[in-house]
Each structure stands twice: as structure tokens, then as C-alpha cells.
Simulated scan of single mutants.
Amino acid sequence: MTEVDDVPGEGLRERRRAHSRATTVDVAMQLFAERGFDAVTVADICAAAQIAPRTFFRYFPSKDDVLAEPARVLAVRLTAAIAAAPAGLDDRQVLTRALRELGEHVVADRARLAVFFRVAEAAAASRSNPFLHLSGRERQLTEQLAARRPGPADWRTRLLVAQSVAAFRVWLDDVVAGTGRDLLAHLDEVLTAP
């Protein structure tokens, strides 16, 4: 779930490393989906991904970190989308636009991310990695929005972020459930609901 093509200007070696890391995540997610998170060892992941344990630990400090990688990538994409928003937009416009962009990525990569969402939901009860929950990123998103304009973030900004992130989570639940709707039109509807 690591984005191999999102590393502009890097050489072949870095692209190969990114590809190997992404493959390791995909293999791990499949193993987690088949056997359950707790039943899969780092050695199992290394064998299936055809990498050495040393290589695994160069990419990820622990098995929990490989589980969190897709969520980390989504969080990085969201942060980048907010940072790239035009200066004249208000907080709501910036956040809606960034979440819409993230939604487009989720839809485009739905098959891979569906595995992650199922695995993360099953493992969530026993895992506490903050990247597994978008709501854990609310404070950081609030601070990022506040940094775009003069003055500190107040409760209104915090509430806007909490509502928007909650709306996105509701939409993700519908994506995982396979509602059969036009997913991006549904995202627009959810993000603009009163």
C-alpha cells in the first residue's frame, strides 16, 4: 500500500525498495486476512514476501507497523492534499476537497484497501496504533488547517474536523460494505450533509 510512484526524482534503487516495501505490505495483508493478525509471524511475512527478516525490520519496526502502513499512507495523502489546497479556500472547503481527493484514491485502489479495512477492523480490538484510526489524526488536521491562516484553531475548527473525519469514516464503512452506489457521489453527499 506504499505508493511506489509517489517518490518523484528518486532513483531505481529507491523505487525498487519502495516496490519491495509495498509488496511486503500486500503479502502481509493477505496473510492477516487469511489467518488473522495474531496467527501471522514476521517470519511468515518474510517467507511469503521472499525477503530476509533484516529487510523486513529495515522497512517496519514491528508487525503492528506493517498493519498500520496503509492507514499511514492515507494519512500522508490527506496531509498532502490539505497542504496543496489553494490559499483562498476556507477550512471547510479545504477539508472537503482533501477528503474528496482521498476518497478518489480509496475508490481507485478499492480492492487492495478493502483487504486492509477488513484486517484492521478485525485487529483493532487488540491493537492501539494511532494510524489505524482516522479520528486519532483530528488534532493534527486541526493544527494543519489553523496553520494556513492567521490566528489559532478554536472549537469551531476542531468540530469541523471531527465532523468531516466522522463523515469520511461513515463513507468508508459503506465502501467496505459494498453498497453498490456511485461511491464518489455518495462521498460528496456524506461530506456535505448538514
Rank of each mutant, 00 (worst) to 15 (best):
M29S: 08
D64M: 06
E101F: 00
R17A: 09
A111Y: 04
T179K: 00
E101P: 00
A18S: 13
Q140C: 05
V94C: 10
T192Y: 01
A43S: 08
F60R: 03
R92P: 05
P61I: 05
Q30M: 09
L132Y: 03
G36Y: 04
D65R: 03
D65N: 02
L89M: 13
L78C: 04
R127A: 15
T96L: 11
F131P: 00
L183W: 01
V94Q: 08
I51Y: 00
A43Y: 01
A120H: 02
T2I: 12
R72G: 07
F56D: 03
P152M: 10
T2E: 11
T24F: 01
P70K: 10
R15M: 08
D44I: 07
R97H: 13
E143K: 12
H105E: 15
R13Y: 08
P150E: 12
R139H: 11
L132M: 14
L67P: 00
L74D: 12
A71H: 05
A22H: 04
V76N: 03
E34Q: 14
A125H: 09
S20K: 13
Q140S: 14
V40W: 01
P86A: 15
G9D: 09
R16E: 07
G136I: 00
R97G: 15
M29G: 05
T55D: 00
Q144A: 15
A153T: 06
D188H: 11
R77M: 11
P61A: 15
V66L: 05
V165A: 04
D154Q: 08
A124F: 13
H105D: 15
A84K: 15
R148N: 07
L145C: 04
G36S: 07
A146L: 07
L141M: 09
A28W: 02
